[in-house]
Design a protein around this nucleic acid. Structure first.
Lengths: 138, 138
DNA sequence: AATGGGGTTTCCCACAATGGGAAGGTCAAG
DNA sequence: CTTGACCTTCCCATTGTGGGAAACCCCATT
């Protein structure tokens, strides 16, 4: 299987295939005489695993861990779960952060008339006059 | 005011001050004989505006728009509001995306025993067997 | 005056993960 | 054999931030 086929059947772009190889997320692919990368069905399986993990927002680092665990028959499910829950925690904190931003901005936008006049609570708040709805950066 | 003072009183790092200048988010600062950048209290005010905008997650591009509107006494609040609501929409879609990831992963993690045995629904799902809880990337 | 410590300058590198594109080699069908 | 589709490597860009080096500047204390 060429890189194009592997890409099409795994959902990982050829560009990313080469990149993943360069950062040792996947082993170096075999080559034909001409230097073309060759992939097996098993490789494609791993790639699909990786793509799904990325769809869940996991970082390359954590995916590396998960692939390792996946291929280790002696693994402890506790280890897998820990990686997952760490990521859930990160997602949660990111969601909280974004939600706080959105809520603040939504309140300001709601208070803005959005007409032909220049007065606008959004700018007023950013200017720092009314410090109440602004984020306090700890 | 030197860059260090401006940084300390605005909450924007000196590194970022130079960067913002290089991308024309702020005008080129004046210089002393020796080449040191000089900032006025008004400059610091603008920097605070920018920092607050970044705290709300606005991109540099949108901040550039907002700073322009802020300094334009003929502005329409409608223009300001539009920039804000566009960002709110982006935040919302990002939040939805992250929330979907978190929910999927949380379900899987909850179903994982997390003990000394290797069996784990997380890996099983990533492997693609049980395709139900996985994301379909459209 | 000399020296030292702290501030400043520019320039380059790094991150995470992905895409774009150029220049050149290869394969298969016509 | 030519053409078009595919592959290779290498470089660049993104976003916004930080790190660090080499050189220069300012001020105060010996």
């Amino acid at each position: 299987m060429n890189i194009g086929q592997a890409s099409a059947t795994s959902g990982v772009s050829a560009k990313m295939l080469r990149y993943y190889e360069s950062i040792d997320l996947i082993p170096r692919a075999g080559r034909t005489e001409a230097g073309y990368r060759v992939y097996s069905a098993k490789d494609v399986n791993t790639l699909r695993f990786i793509r799904r993990a990325r769809d869940l927002g996991l970082s390359i680092g954590r995916i590396k861990l998960l692939v390792g665990l996946w291929q280790d028959r002696e693994r402890l499910s506790a280890d897998v779960k820990r990686v997952a829950t760490e990521h859930v925690a990160e997602l949660d904190s990111k969601i909280l952060e974004l939600t706080a931003m959105r809520d603040t901005l939504q309140v300001l936008a709601d208070a803005c008339l959005g007409d032909h006049r220049p007065d606008c609570p959004i700018l007023h708040d950013l200017e720092g006059g009314g410090r109440a709805p602004t984020q306090w950066a700890p």
